[in-house]
């Protein structure tokens, strides 16, 4: 039997790694992938708790998250493609014209 804490720890670790990816990578595609990783980490926690409390609510929530993530990826990637088309570059460090 695996204590739920282990799953939570794994979830947290994956989440932090995803966040780290968002922070340190300059490629928007990889940033996106890191966001997906963070969502996965959250989903893992949901499912773990769903298993602990013997209910399907958590799983249904994960289902919704997956749907939203798919929508997000579709729009996000479309945006990236559009940015690339206009600037011939997708380095997010160069997308800094909105500054004070």
């Amino acid at each position: 039997m695996v204590p739920v804490d282990y799953y939570i720890a794994l979830s947290a670790l994956l989440f932090v790694l995803g966040a780290l990816g968002v922070l340190i990578r300059r490629n928007p595609l990889i940033v996106f992938m890191s966001v997906e990783l963070m969502l996965n980490a959250a989903n893992l926690a949901f499912v773990a708790f769903s298993s602990v409390f013997k209910t399907f609510n958590g799983q249904i929530f994960v289902f919704f998250v997956i749907a939203v993530a798919a929508a997000e990826v579709a729009v996000g990637l479309a945006l990236i493609v559009e940015i690339f088309k206009s600037r011939k570059n997708i380095n997010i460090d160069e997308l800094n014209s909105l500054k004070g």
């Binding site: 968002v22 997010i92 004070g100």
Partner: peptide, 18 residues
Amino acid sequence: NMRKVQNGFVRSYALSVM
């Protein structure tokens, strides 16, 4: 000084959130 924070780099905003 505050406007330096608003530097336009998405990553540093994310860092702030973090």
